[in-house]
């Protein structure tokens, strides 16, 4: 029985870590490929969630609402890049402040349109038995979704022409321009893809995390810490960090309270940054 309990804790922690990773990947992509921290990332997640919710309520099957959410957030992301981000390249902290302002604008708009409380959609019902325990199936499914997202982003960055251009633009910007890569268009696409990934996360997590205007704030704390702890090698770094930190916090939370889990997350983050002040991947030789 003890073993069963341990197995359930492990599985649910792995699924918490996967949920964190799903919420983080978009942020990591934008930071890794553009050097931009998007403080409105959580609000793009929220927009994805609300889009999926609205579309589902209008009668579209939930599974189809996910690509619609991705499309909507990608378009909004592209507009934001065009109007704000591309005027601020190379000014990391100004970008942070501007996207921070944006996050509060999106938050307030969501309050205006949807009110502060909205119904969630029912979690697709199926569960998995582990010995005497029974675990909800949908959160476990997130482990697979997180892995699929990682593989998708990896292939996008290594196999597609866009991915090559994007990586070239961030590694040696002037060389990329010299061989004719138009970095402003690549950047617009990157930002849009990052926002689309956030929208995907919001939609796919909707059965677990109900849409509320303030859901972005709750999520971003851990997502930001994950990205800065990960450091320059964003994709691999974020995956490892999310597993370690998200899993650890979840284990702590399952034995104590969720607030203790949050405190644990923060303290461990501070400790990791103490040991690796520029992120854990600062001295790695791989680049993705």
């Amino acid at each position: 029985m003890e073993l069963d309990f341990l197995a359930t804790v492990l599985l649910s922690s792995l699924s918490s870590a996967s949920i964190l990773l799903i919420a983080t990947i978009g942020l990591a992509v934008v930071f890794g490929l553009m050097g931009v921290i998007n403080l409105a990332h959580g609000e793009f997640l929220m927009i994805g969630a609300y889009t999926a919710l609205t579309v589902t309520q209008a009668g579209v099957p939930y599974i189809l609402s996910i690509p619609i959410a991705v499309a909507v957030t990608m378009v909004i992301g592209a507009i934001v890049e065009l109007l704000i981000i591309n005027r601020l390249y190379g000014r990391l902290f100004d970008t942070m402040l501007a996207t921070w302002g944006l996050s509060i604008v999106f938050y307030q708009l969501a309050v205006l349109i949807f009110g502060t409380v909205t119904p969630g959609i029912g979690m697709p019902q199926f569960s998995i038995a582990v010995g005497e325990y029974s675990l909800a199936g949908y959160p476990l499914l997130m482990i697979g979704v997180a892995a699929a997202m990682l593989i998708f982003v990896y292939l996008l960055m290594t196999k597609s022409v866009y991915g090559m251009k994007a990586r070239a633009s961030i590694q040696v910007p002037h060389m990329a321009q010299a061989i004719g890569i138009e970095s402003s268009r690549t950047n617009m696409l990157t930002f849009s893809v990052g926002c689309g990934l956030a929208g995907f996360a919001g939609a796919v997590l909707l059965p677990i995390v109900p849409a509320t205007p303030s859901m972005g704030f709750a999520f971003v704390i851990k997502a930001f810490l994950t990205v800065v702890v990960a450091g320059p090698v964003t994709l691999t770094g974020s995956a490892i960090t999310a597993l370690g930190l998200g899993g650890g916090a979840s284990v702590t939370a399952s034995f104590m309270t969720s607030v203790v889990g949050d405190v644990f997350f923060f303290v461990i983050t501070a400790l990791l940054l103490w040991l690796y002040p520029m992120g854990i991947s600062a001295k790695w030789r791989r680049k993705l």
Partner: peptide, 12 residues
């Protein structure tokens, strides 16, 4: 809402 917009404009 206004303050969020103000911050964006200030930075820009």
């Amino acid at each position: 809402l206004i303050l969020g917009g103000v911050l964006i404009l200030l930075v820009l």
